[in-house]
């Protein structure tokens, strides 16, 4: 009973934080982009515009729900859910910190669950999110949506390949599919044991592939405003539109967490092997926060690729490099 309560509380806290962080990301996106363009960004709602996401949410709720003529209404409604839910599900296996001891109660590790096939779960559920995009694009009965959806599915499948191959390298080094085990393997107190140092090429490919996987700039062909109006969610309005955005930002946060876990030692604190849980959590948040910022930073720096360039990069550059990386990793492990 007590265990169940603890898990329930942990789940609520983590999901609450995830949604809150996603909301905050929308604000951060606008703030950082404004600053990079020498503007102020939203600063009217609440102090420093902090309540802007709330205002946006209220606006979304009051917007009119539209369903285009000739659209498949059920799939049309299903798509935003399919887009948001997988992105939020994957956060369940991310280890945010070690043992939590709160008010003398041992709450176990700070993660919803520590699956021993955590990586597999993450990849499997993450792969589902492509359905939201392609179904949304297809059900809208609009050429722009359809093209956006097609591009997104092609792109996500292409980059998922490299992404998984890179994860395999890390998994091979650790010998475990459990994300906590992967973290613990890097948590030696010495930052040099982080995977980013042993696998620099893999790290670079992984980070770039996450951009493609989350449909972010410079690979946001699913939206691609100059060509496709707004891509797969052209026809969406109101809360359905908001759900797509929630999905996108949740996916970004999860990917930032994943990158942290796989390459930057997760919650490990440099030069402090047995740090208390809140220091570990702070360390994790700082690293994940940097990657979340990187998503925004890159978006407002780089121009969009061309679609053929994207495919060229995915299939002709990243895939061979990832394969080679896996080969070398495997060879080194088997020789050592």
């Amino acid at each position: 009973m007590n265990d169940f309560l603890i898990i329930l509380i942990k789940t609520c806290v983590i999901y609450g934080c995830l949604i809150g962080a996603a909301a905050l990301m929308t604000l951060a996106e606008r703030k950082f982009s404004a600053w990079m363009q020498l503007r102020y960004g939203p600063n009217r709602v609440g102090p420093w515009g902090l309540l802007q996401p709330l205002a946006d949410g209220v606006k979304f709720i009051f917007k009119e729900e539209l369903c285009p003529d000739g659209a498949n209404p059920w799939i049309f409604r299903l798509a935003p859910i399919l887009s948001a839910v997988p992105a939020m599900l994957t956060v369940a296996v991310i280890p945010f910190a070690g043992d939590v001891n709160l008010f003398g109660v041992d709450c176990g590790n700070l993660s919803i669950t520590d699956l021993d096939i955590g990586v597999l779960f993450l990849v499997a559920i993450g792969g589902l999110s492509v359905y939201g995009v392609i179904l949304g694009g297809w059900a809208s009965n609009s050429k722009y949506s359809l093209l956006g959806g097609l591009r997104a599915s092609a792109q996500m499948i292409s980059y998922e390949l490299s992404l998984i191959l890179i994860i395999l390298c890390v998994v091979a080094m650790t010998g475990s599919l459990d994300l906590r085990a992967i973290t613990e393997a890097q948590n030696t107190g010495n930052p040099l044991s982080w995977n980013v140092f042993s696998q620099p090429l893999a790290f670079v490919i992984f980070v770039i592939a996450t951009f493609a996987e989350t449909n972010r700039h410079p690979f946001d062909f699913a939206e691609c405003e100059p060509e496709l109006v707004a891509g797969f969610h052209t026809e969406y309005s109101s809360m359905k539109f908001a759900l797509f955005f929630l999905g996108e930002y949740c996916a970004m946060i999860v990917m930032a967490c994943l990158t942290t876990t796989l390459f930057l030692g997760g919650y490990s604190v440099p030069f402090w092997e047995d740090a208390p849980w809140f220091v570990e959590l702070g360390s994790f948040c700082a690293k994940a926060g940097f990657f979340a910022f990187l998503f925004i930073w890159v978006r407002w720096t780089l121009p969009r690729f061309r679609f053929d360039q994207l495919m060229h990069l995915g299939w002709k550059v990243f895939l061979p490099l990832a394969l080679a990386n896996l080969l070398v990793t495997g060879a080194v492990i088997s020789l050592a």
């Binding site: 600053w35 990079m36 020498l38 503007r39 102020y40 930073w297 890159v298 407002w300 720096t301």
Partner: peptide, 14 residues
């Protein structure tokens, strides 16, 4: 990236 990062700290024109 370094250019955009530096811009973040310049005075705003809005």
């Amino acid at each position: 990236l370094s250019i955009t990062f530096r811009k973040m700290f310049q005075p705003k024109v809005t």
